[in-house]
Design a protein around this nucleic acid. Structure first.
Length: 559
RNA sequence: CGGGGCGUGGCGCAGCUUGGUAGCGCGCUCGCUUUGGGAGCGAGAGGUCCUCGGUUCGAAUCCGAGCGCCCCGACCA
């Protein structure tokens, strides 16, 4: 058993001044973590116990799907990163060793693991493989935030699957999907699996696991049977009332009115009756993107629709290629035009490409030609399968990617198939952030000054709070209880410090050990101990002799 | 990288406008008392006032430069 009198649990009475997110505040106050630099955190002993328990759950489930645990270095030669094209990433820490050799600090381990597999795997008989490790990742984040939610160094569980073909990858992907489901359930989280963008990892399909909570950095769009990161979400737009049809486009004076709001107000129409122009430069050409006036361009979806990165056009480029800034529109423009598909059939108001003028009655297709794309961000209330979506903030706690052959081809990870033909290995990559699971649990389950950990990730199973100092009957009885709890198979922490009862209760609330037994003079006089457990949240007085067996039995039969 | 804020004992803060040699609460140490929701009394310890430079008889305070940290945004597995 652990005695708190000899344990480093640096709790604080007051919130740290600079903490905003609840998990950040509570983790610092409860002595789980301490900061040592921007985005750099140490796990104090109790915090590390929690982190370790999360890792234990992960290890258990990774082994259950046949994953093989290994360990790769954080410090890596730059060579492989140059070959995969990821050496250019700004977040990648780069350094030289004393001989001047170029090194990097791993931000993930595709390069390392694929290099090994390239050397070792020769035949289809060597596949499939799932290799994984729990290892430190280093990322030069431009803005670390919210305690351990976004840090420059963190531990990640990353696994990598290697298969002969797409069918094999699908199988590995599905195995991970099921393992992740069990991991997040066992960690006691509310979570969603959402469709996600493939981002810098490249590849052909990906999902993210999202834990909804206020401190989340991501937004997810949710409807019955539907969940997607808003970066990629699609939904049916809400209807908008369009003005009456007119025979042909007509110029209207709009002196000085350059925003959607100004124009719609001045003309007495809803903002959705306008088309908003969003000129971008991609691959050195100018493209005019149009979305409904009440919608926003989604940069991820636009990047995917364009097939390459883009930037907003400068005012000079707009003036030269389209028209006066503030009044640009598609009619008469000879640049490529993308029209968001939420702008359905009808007539819209657009910029006239003349200073102080717009055109009304403009009909896409008749008055300008376009390519139809889905590039807007979904809005709360849009429909999926007839159901309105809601949008919630969430923490990304895990992700799974179908990588395909990007890394195997770049790093020569090929095998010979049964016909003796050389084939690229088909890869997947799968990450989980244990620290984010810890933070998400707090976000979802704590209030401002107390926590109750899910049983599978709690730092201890039971805490015995002794209300009595050195040499007291309470302490003797408390230690006896703790011993019996351990014999019943629980891990136990005992608050045997000489602080006042209030201070001990406050710390116990902060620490959040699920089962709490309080031994005080009052109960002791009648041979009783006070018991508080998550499955029976009201305080109960139980007889000293039966308390341990009662708690152990109840615990075994609750989830 | 843009915007905003902050750097003063371990923690939370005041002092800065108007320069005069650093203070409060909590915590810590010792003693006595106290023990069911952050105890009481008494006595103590602990600070390069982020750094460097400048102004001045004198700088926590004024000026300049730099560093660090937080928040919002951009970006991001």
């Amino acid at each position: 058993m652990q005695l708190l009198s000899s344990y480093l649990l640096p709790t604080e009475r007051e919130d740290p001044a600079d903490a905003e997110a609840r998990s950040h505040r509570l983790m610092v106050r409860s002595g789980l973590i301490r900061q040592i630099g921007a985005g750099l955190w140490s796990w104090m002993p109790a915090g590390w116990r929690i982190h370790s328990r999360v890792c234990d759950v992960i290890r258990d489930e990774m082994e259950a799907i046949g994953g093989q645990e290994m360990l790769m270095p954080v410090l890596l030669p730059a060579e492989a990163w140059k070959r995969t094209g990821r050496y250019e990433i700004d977040e990648l820490f780069k350094l030289e060793d004393r001989k001047g050799a170029e090194m990097v600090l791993a931000m993930t381990h595709e390069e390392a693991v694929t290099s090994h597999v390239a050397q070792v795997v020769r035949s289809y008989r060597d596949l499939p493989l799932i290799l994984w490790h729990l290892q430190t990742k280093e990322r030069d984040e431009p803005r670390p935030r919210a305690g351990v939610l976004r840090t420059r160094e963190f531990i990640m569980k990353d696994s990598y699957s290697f298969d002969c073909d797409q069918a094999g990858l699908d199988e590995a992907y599905e195995k991970h999907s099921q393992a992740y489901e069990r991991i997040f359930d066992r960690c006691g989280l509310e979570w969603y699996r959402v469709e996600s963008d493939v981002g810098m990892m490249g590849g052909s399909g990906a999902h993210e696991y999202m834990a909804p909570c206020a401190a989340g950095e991501n937004e997810v769009a949710l409807a019955p049977g539907y969940a997607a990161n808003v970066e990629v979400a699609s939904a049916q737009a809400q209807e908008v009332e369009l003005p009456p049809i007119i025979a042909e486009p007509e110029t209207v004076e709009t002196p000085g009115l350059t925003t959607v709001e100004q124009v719609s107000k001045s003309l007495g129409v809803s903002s959705g009756a306008l088309l908003k122009a969003f000129p971008v430069i991609t691959d050195d050409r100018l493209v005019l993107v149009l979305v409904r006036g009440d919608h926003r361009v989604n940069e991820t979806k636009l990047t995917n629709a364009l097939g390459s990165p883009f930037r907003q056009a400068t005012n000079e480029e707009i003036e030269e290629g389209i028209g006066p800034v503030g009044f640009i529109g598609p009619v008469g423009s000879d640049c490529e035009i993308l029209l968001d598909e939420a702008a359905t059939a009808g007539q819209y108001i657009v910029g006239a490409n003349l200073v102080d003028a717009h055109l009304r009655g403009v009909e896409p297709g008749r008055d300008f030609s376009f390519k139809s794309v889905d590039v807007r961000s979904v809005e709360e209330g849009d429909l999926v399968n007839g159901h309105p979506i809601r949008i919630e903030p969430a923490i990304e706690i895990g992700n799974i990617f179908r990588l395909g052959t990007r890394y195997s081809e770049a790093l020569d990870a090929f095998y010979l198939d049964s016909d003796g033909v050389r084939q690229p290995i088909v890869m997947g990559s799968y990450g989980i952030g244990p620290a984010r699971i810890v933070a998400a649990a707090i976000e979802q389950l704590s209030d401002d000054s107390s926590m109750i950990w899910p049983r599978n990730i709690a730092p201890w199973d039971a805490e015995v709070v002794v209300l009595g100092g050195e040499g007291s009957d309470e302490l003797a009885a408390g230690l006896k209880l703790a011993t019996e709890l351990e014999e019943a198979g629980l891990t136990v922490v005992v608050d045997d410090r000489s602080d006042s009862p209030g201070a001990k209760f406050a710390d116990a609330d902060l620490l959040g050990v699920p089962v709490r037994l309080t031994v005080g003079k009052r109960g002791l006089a009648s041979g009783q101990v006070e018991v508080k457990v998550p499955w029976h949240p009201e305080d109960r007085m139980l007889a000293l002799e039966t308390a341990v067996s009662a708690v152990a039995e109840e615990r075994a039969s609750s989830n």
